[in-house]
Design a protein around this nucleic acid. Structure first.
Length: 235
DNA sequence: AACGTAAGCAACCGCGGTGCG
DNA sequence: TCGCACCGCGGTTGCTTACGT
């Protein structure tokens, strides 16, 4: 119950908020979101914090375009499970349900459009492979032009966009890496410092053998939290 | 160069499930 | 057993960027 009738912040997160959230999640784990939200001083709801963490700040996150394998897997699993996005996401290490959902949405939109245009001329034109609905997917054209979206940090090897536009996750994590070694007590009561950092964030992804691929070396860059609050950068 | 449209992404909302007192 | 608070999920919306005219 929010006693303090706070004007909870909404909208896009700032770099400061991100850093704060990361610090506090490292301290308290990624379960007690209401608590984290309250204690961190972020005027955000626990819900909002969780969402930000899960969809954007989580260390294991892969960013950038879906690979053809991933796309295929999404299609496959969606055919099997329907809109169980979180379930599907568990089979795609590093991808979030939100991401998959968004992908699916644009994918279906694209498909619908294609179908429409394919139908209007009404000529079959050997509408090849109606069975393999993957056809539209399996090779996202991307002629190498300015393909790197603002959010890409993964595939094209680091932050093409790096500079002027705000900040990248790499920046943030570098920051964290630097600051995390210092006691994270800044701006928080001494109480915070005495908590042992619970092993962070049980990753919700199932690294099951039946996942069709494993994270490629480059993308498996992961920050491993240590008990003393430091982070190990692998990969 | 300016404008309009489409695509992509992040975030919010509402609801149902679960755990706890 | 009931009520409450919190968490997680799926749907939806709004904003930003990219692209075409």
């Amino acid at each position: 119950m929010k006693t303090m009738k706070d004007e909870t912040r909404k909208g896009p997160w700032t770099e400061q908020e991100d850093i704060l959230l990361i610090n506090f999640v490292n301290l308290f784990g990624d379960r007690r979101w209401d608590f984290v939200a309250k204690v961190s001083g972020l005027n955000r709801t626990g819900k909002s914090c969780r969402l930000r963490w899960v969809n954007y700040l989580h260390p294991g996150l892969k960013r950038g375009k879906m690979t053809p394998q991933e796309e295929r897997l999404v299609l496959e699993l969606h055919a099997r499970w329907g809109n169980r996005w979180s379930r599907i996401a568990r089979k795609l290490p590093g991808r979030t349900d939100n991401e998959i959902k968004n992908y699916w949405r644009t994918h279906t939109r694209k498909k619908a459009q294609e179908r429409k245009t394919a139908m209007s001329p009404s000529l079959s034109s050997s509408n090849c492979s109606s069975s393999s609905n993957i056809t539209t997917v399996n090779s996202p054209p991307l002629p190498g032009t300015g393909e790197a979206s603002f959010y890409d940090t993964g595939e094209l090897g680091e932050a093409v966009q790096g500079g002027e536009k705000g900040y990248s996750m790499d920046d943030i994590w570098k920051d964290i890496e630097n600051t995390i070694n210092e006691p994270v007590c800044d701006g928080f009561s001494e109480e915070g410092c005495n908590f042992s950092c619970p092993s962070l964030a049980s990753p919700s992804w199932e690294y099951s053998p039946d996942t069709l691929w494993s994270i490629s070396g480059e993308e498996s860059r992961v920050f491993l939290p240590y008990d003393d609050g430091t982070m190990l950068l692998t990969g």
